[in-house]
Design a protein around this nucleic acid. Structure first.
Length: 641
DNA sequence: CGCACTAGACTTTTT
DNA sequence: GTCTAGTGCG
């Protein structure tokens, strides 16, 4: 295999295939290239593709990795174990669980919204007075912390809270199990437990995964690391790539400490540092290096580049948030006038609300733009509603889908009536859907009784449509829209529901695509697609090469690069965020800043405003300490008139 | 059951 | 300032 396009360190990281390897790859040093080439190299050395596992954090990264491996060695990589941590766990669980700890084959995975609904019902059932310390949100964070073994992070306000939490936790587990459902954390936790429970399963997978690769290692949490540790215990060919300076998810449980743990667990590990950056100009890199050098406990590294010099990053101190927007726009117009495309430009900020100022100005200047953020595609209410009909038609046992749509659109089926159905379903040990048959006409209102019959017919209608292989399967979306009355509901307020309808119709494309990507009968393909959508946040193909200015948070920008980057609202209290107080939190903010700077390839503009409207008040902010502490020579500075 | 109103919150969120 | 979840009324 040809590795001549790699530099010395990259080559080393690709070819050092035996034993534990830690690869420190700074921003823009070709991390993905190393990973994909390493997998390709393994394959070219005769390693079978089923003996390799590679895990990342995003679907996007996983898809990209698969595609690039496939093109490097010209194989079909679609069935390779290259996936997100969660899909990885799910795949093992799906393959191995027939009957396990009460879980049955065909279990469902629920998202945070569903978890929240479950917890809310539990707290309601306690029938205790409302308090600030007993909310579903707080309890769910506790559940997640417990599942992730972050026991030390759980701090109860008082005994009362702890007592109710313990009860809630038990009920939460029981409800999920009864519904044959797992939450996101369970996908990792249960995989570990299953491996612990079953000698056979453990043996299968530790034999199987001869080579393990972990991407973005700095963002792994305790459980994810534990899972991979278990799996590589036999072959110990574990390769981790990461950059502790880009760890910006500790609020989600990411543990930079896993890097130290790795060094302890595998004392004979090999360290490979990749420091040559292929992305940014020397001026941008110098600033990045200077900013991040103020963090403590780093494995020291110094990015360098052989790229040509360009202008220094420019800090502009603006008077107000509005004049900051003006400044950025004038620059955008100037740059596009010089030949840059809109798509070369990204505006980045710490918090989503900061994008608000831009919308009206973008429209006024007629500059095309996309603001990233907000609710992701598969989490949208209307999308989930339609999918719930499809899920229920395929699987009558899907309690979460049943609850979701039994009265959406409103069809006079009250909460009391659904409670009655639930009672019947428990009594006869059948699904909620089947339990409708046990409801007598005098149990509920006449309206409700009719609606229930009708509801059954709707679901049977959908089932019939998807069972007939002659039908064009993507049209099931039209069938659902029509028969459920969903279309009628949306038409009532046309203007504001237009986008919703478009989102729903986009599902036709999703289904069409699924017919190509999955195999089996139509229903099998649909089932797989529906299982996968829980773990998807956005439409992969929606990330575009269209000629628009992109606006996003630094978190969303991780892994991306742009010729021109504007870092706006770089002010103390905004960035670093006012919530960050202790040293640990400030260091994470500084890493976010580092991520921001290193997104830029050619030009970096940093702006701040002396006066800003925040939360309906005027705030007088100082320029961010991250930037104002930087040595004089690294930055061009200007103050707006 | 569904709408309208009010209180309160208000970083980041790969799954 | 703006969005949300939760309450109360028709």
């Amino acid at each position: 295999m040809d590795l001549s396009h790699l530099n010395k360190e990259q080559k080393h990281a690709v070819m050092e295939v035996k034993g534990p390897v830690m690869c420190i790859a700074g921003a823009g040093t070709g991390k993905t290239r190393v990973l994909t080439n390493r997998i390709a190299y393994l394959l070219s050395q005769g390693v079978s593709k089923c003996n390799i596992a590679a895990v990342t954090f995003t679907n996007k990264a996983a898809t990209e990795m698969k595609e690039r491996v496939a093109s490097l060695v010209d194989i079909d990589a679609s069935d390779m174990w290259i996936s997100t941590f969660h899909s990885f766990g799910l795949r093992i669980l799906r393959e191995e669980i027939v009957q396990w700890r009460g879980y049955k084959k065909g279990f469902t995975v629920i998202d945070e919204e569903d978890s929240n609904k479950v917890m809310k019902k539990i707290i309601e059932s306690f029938d205790i007075p409302k308090t600030d310390c007993i909310t579903s949100k707080i309890f769910l964070t506790f559940v997640s912390m417990e599942k992730n073994k972050q026991y030390n992070q759980i701090v109860f306000d008082n005994d009362y809270q702890e007592e109710w939490y313990r009860k809630a936790r038990k009920l939460y587990d029981a409800k999920l199990l009864a519904a044959n459902a797992m939450d996101f954390d369970d996908l990792i936790l249960n995989t570990i437990e299953l491996l612990n429970d079953s000698e056979y399963v453990l043996k299968t997978y530790i034999e199987k995964f001869q080579y393990i690769l972990i991407d973005e290692f700095q963002d792994t949490n305790l459980l994810q690391y534990e899972l991979m540790t278990i799996l590589c215990q036999k072959h110990k060919n574990i390769f981790i790539v990461g950059d502790q300076d880009q760890s910006i998810y500790s609020f989600r449980g990411a543990k930079i400490g896993n890097i130290d743990q790795f060094m302890k667990d595998y004392p004979d590990y090999k360290l490979i540092k990749i420091e040559e950056n292929y992305r940014s100009t020397p001026e941008i890199l110098k600033l990045a290096n200077d900013v991040i050098s103020k963090n403590t406990n780093r494995i020291d590294k110094n990015l360098f580049t052989s790229k040509d010099s360009k202008q220094k990053p420019l800090l502009t101190v603006c008077n107000t948030d509005n004049s900051e927007v003006e400044f950025i726009f004038k620059e955008i117009l100037r740059l596009t006038g010089k030949g840059y495309n809109y798509s070369d430009i990204a505006i980045m900020y710490r918090s989503n609300y900061l994008s608000r100022n831009f919308e009206s100005t973008f429209k006024r200047y007629k500059v095309p733009y996309t603001i990233y953020g907000g609710i992701s595609y598969f989490a949208r209410k209307e999308v989930k509603d339609i999918l719930a009909y499809l899920k229920l038609a395929i699987n009558f046992d899907d309690k979460f889908s049943f609850d979701r749509i039994i009265n959406v659109p409103a069809r006079k089926i009250s909460k009391e009536s659904t409670d009655k159905i639930f009672v019947e379903s428990v009594r006869y040990d059948v699904s909620m859907f089947k339990a409708i048959d046990y409801i007598e006409s005098n149990d509920v209102s006449k309206q409700c009784y009719e609606s229930l019959r009708n509801f059954k017919n709707i679901i049977y209608g959908i089932k019939e449509f998807i069972s007939n292989e002659k039908n064009d399967i993507k049209n099931v979306i039209d069938v659902i829209l029509e028969t459920t009355g969903y279309l009628k509901m949306l038409s009532s307020k046309k203007e504001e529901n237009d986008q919703k309808l478009l989102n729903i119709l986009e599902l036709k494309n999703v289904i069409r695509e699924a017919m190509y990507t999955y195999s089996g009968t139509v229903i099998e393909k649909l089932t797989q697609m529906l299982e996968d959508t829980v773990l998807k946040t956005d439409l992969d193909n929606l990330d575009d090469n269209d000629n628009k200015v992109k606006l996003m948070t630094y978190h969303q920008a991780k892994g991306l690069e742009f010729p021109i980057v504007f870092m706006m609202a770089t002010e103390d209290g905004v960035f670093p965020n006012g919530f960050a107080t202790n040293r640990f939190e400030l260091e994470e903010e500084r890493r976010i800043c580092y991520v921001g700077i290193t997104r830029a390839k050619e030009r970096l503009f940093i702006t701040c405003a002396k006066k800003r409207f925040m939360y309906g008040r005027v705030a007088f902010n100082k320029p961010s300490q991250f930037i104002s502490n930087v040595s004089e020579s690294l930055l061009e500075r200007q103050v707006q008139m």
